[in-house]
Design a protein around this nucleic acid. Structure first.
Length: 644
DNA sequence: TACTTTCAACTG
DNA sequence: CGGACAGTTGAAAGTA
């Protein structure tokens, strides 16, 4: 082994009791380790600051990596040494790369400095270079030097017929080897220095340590979900591809007939010209979000505007809506599934998404390649039966089902109990339909609510208004969601705050607190940083963030319950597969009847105690036997003993 | 050419 | 002064 520690640094660190602590990083030929990209350089920095570096060769035509047998053995020995604590920045990436390439299992304690940084302050950049530049004042020059050299090498390589990536960062193997080494080793130096930087607050214990530890558990839970992947029905993907291609070409023909064959339907600019300049439609503006605050309001050609024009009899608008819908399902979902998926060890076509645990500032999870969290959900829509992407998701195996379990109104429960709003808490505990009641209060004198369809529509608007107010909406957006004028919107806001005065007071308190401190602190001790003029966001951060804390702990708990449980021999082990903010997905043998209850037990947990609730959070189970679009309520639902 | 911004789509 | 929150992705258009 090349790693030596000359003398132990004063180590009051609780993280490593024995063995060594080594920062580790890889340079790779790309980001997609499921699809052939591989690590070609490996750097190490030990706790004393001693560096090591190993580099293999990359064939510039095939992009295949080759390592000497000794080097490979050294690296695998390091990775599999359970006594070595491995410190990484974005650990899931490097572990995934190595496990895929070497076919080994990384052992030993994993420490991710990205987690330390994100828990410290989720509102600031946590990429290794900018982070170290900020907190450790380390220059980013090494990366600039390497990148400049890579750009030059790429220009030459293009002529030579090399296989290039569209991303300069994925072609680091082409750059000057000395610069690459310098860069790689500096990265593990950075990582180790970050570790030194954060170990003090960590060792002080308290909420920071608890959160960092919890996040490391979530990291490994998400890694296991990613490794398992979710099953995709290839035949269904083919079917939907044909379906959407047909839809697209059908509407393109119609558009040709209408005389707009030359317009690029993906270009908002060209569409704006057609509708506002040629057809002289009255202006419809984009709803401005706070991000766009400084910008001038702009004309929109989004589906809502098109819908309006379609309702006035505009055929072109009607066609664009249908075309875009089909195009979106194809481009963003179906074809992504086909490109990203691969056969798993049992021969099932499977998607392996990438969960980010250090993404959203509210400390929710996010998801990429593909983003499982924004796949169309026809069940929540009034129309839109053609949004069929979920049909591609399917249980793997004959006796297999998927359980989707979602919290019932977590954000509302969290809002009312964090704010201690008397009316809200009572309504929830009495199991009242608060959105319906609000709809009656606001609009029953205007509409016939004995008609269920009418009631449903306005109940939904009331619900949207409540969420709007939690998110900090102003009169303008309330006008949009309620579809009313200024005075009516003002009245709605007044009625809401009169109904939930505790929530209103709480929101104002949080905003003040945010303005004074620059952050607010959630019940699990996490700080949500709120900058200057954005103090109205504090309430939302608190609620969204607290719901996320609950879900992360629930995921750990489900994973643990399923991992350590021994099902009967004929059943394969139930496994946690995915999560979508307030929802979890588990794959299990349908004959294994105990699974739903385990999930619900884990999700209901004892979170209510932390949130000041007298009863547990409620979660409902749905079951999928065919595909995700055909979820059905599980009957009967598991029953839990109430704990107080 | 390569990188960034804008817009539109979808989710909770 | 008054703001709908948090995301990911792809295509077009703008900029260096």
């Amino acid at each position: 082994m090349k790693f030596k520690i000359k003398k132990q640094r004063k180590v009051p660190i609780e993280i490593s009791i024995e063995g060594r602590i080594v920062a580790f990083d890889t340079e790779t030929t790309g980001l997609r380790f499921h699809h052939g990209d591989a690590p070609f350089a490996f750097s190490f920095t030990d706790y004393e600051g001693n560096d090591s570096y190993i580099r293999g060769d990359v064939d510039p035509f095939t992009r295949k990596v080759s390592l000497s047998r000794e080097d490979e053995a050294t690296i695998v020995e390091f990775l599999e040494d359970a006594t070595i604590t491995k410190v990484m920045h974005n650990a899931k990436f490097d572990i995934g790369m190595c496990e895929q390439y070497f076919g080994c299992k990384v052992k030993g304690k994993i420490i991710d400095t990205m987690i330390f940084a994100h828990v410290w302050d989720s509102s600031r950049p946590i990429g290794l270079k900018p982070l170290c530049n900020r907190v450790l004042n380390i220059s980013e020059q090494d990366q600039k030097d390497l990148q400049a050299s890579v750009v030059r090498a790429r220009a030459k390589g293009k002529k030579a017929g090399y296989t290039l990536s569209s991303d300069v960062k994925a072609d680091y193997h082409l750059g000057d080897p000395e610069l690459c080494k310098q860069y790689a080793v500096t990265d593990t130096q950075r990582t180790m220095q970050l570790f030194w930087f954060f170990e003090e607050p960590y060792n002080e214990g308290g909420a920071y340590k608890e959160l960092v530890d919890m996040e490391h558990k979530v990291l490994m839970v998400t890694k296991r979900m990613e490794d398992r992947g979710v099953g995709i029905d290839w035949g269904k993907c083919i079917e939907l591809t044909e379906y959407y291609e047909d839809t697209k070409s059908g509407f393109l023909d119609l558009i040709n007939v209408e005389g707009y064959g030359d317009v690029n339907l993906n270009s908002p600019k060209q569409l704006a010209k057609v509708f506002y300049e040629d057809k002289l439609m009255p202006p419809i503006y984009r709803t401005r979000k706070s991000k766009d605050k400084g910008r001038a309001k702009s004309l929109t050609t989004d589906s809502k505007a098109l819908q309006h024009w379609a309702s006035l009899g505009d055929t072109f608008a009607k066609c664009i809506i249908a075309y875009r819908e089909a195009d979106h399902q194809l481009k963003n979902f179906v074809s992504v599934f086909m490109d990203e998926g691969k056969k798993d060890k049992d021969g099932f076509f499977t998607l392996h998404p990438n969960y980010r645990t250090c993404g959203p500032i509210t400390a929710r999870l996010s998801c990429t390649t593909p983003n499982l969290m924004n796949i169309s959900n026809p069940q929540t829509r009034e129309s839109g039966v053609s949004l069929r992407a979920r049909e591609c998701f399917t249980p793997r195996g004959e006796n297999t089902v998927l359980y989707f379990t979602d919290y019932s109104q977590v954000e509302v429960w969290v809002s009312m109990f964090l704010s201690k709003d008397e009316a809200g808490m009572k309504a929830l505990l009495d199991n009242e339909d608060m959105h319906k009641n609000m709809a009656l209060k606001l609009w029953s004198h205007m509409y016939d609510f004995s008609n269920p369809a009418v009631l449903k529509k306005w109940r939904k608007r009331a619900k949207f208004c409540l969420f709007g107010l939690i998110y900090g909406a102003g009169v303008g957006s309330i006008m949009d969601t309620a579809g009313c004028g200024l005075d009516e919107a003002k009245k709605i806001i007044r009625v809401f705050w009169d109904t939930y005065p505790g929530l209103h007071t709480y929101s104002k308190q949080l905003s003040e607190e945010a303005e004074i401190n620059g952050y607010v602190t959630g019940p699990y001790g996490r700080r949500y940083h709120v900058t200057g003029d954005d103090s109205y966001k504090a309430l939302n951060y608190m609620i969204q963030g607290t719901a996320a804390e609950v879900m992360k702990r629930a995921l750990i708990s489900i994973d643990k319950a399923l991992t350590f449980r021994k099902p009967k021999k004929k059943f394969k082990k139930a496994k946690l597969l995915l999560t979508i903010h307030d929802e979890t997905g588990v794959e299990a043998d349908k004959r294994d009847k105990a699974v739903p209850k385990l999930i619900v037990e884990a999700m209901s947990g004892e979170f209510h105690k932390m949130l000041g609730m007298p009863v547990r959070l409620k979660a409902d189970v749905e079951v999928v036997t065919t595909n995700w679009a055909e979820k059905e309520k599980l009957d009967p639902q598991p029953v839990l003993k109430d704990i107080t």
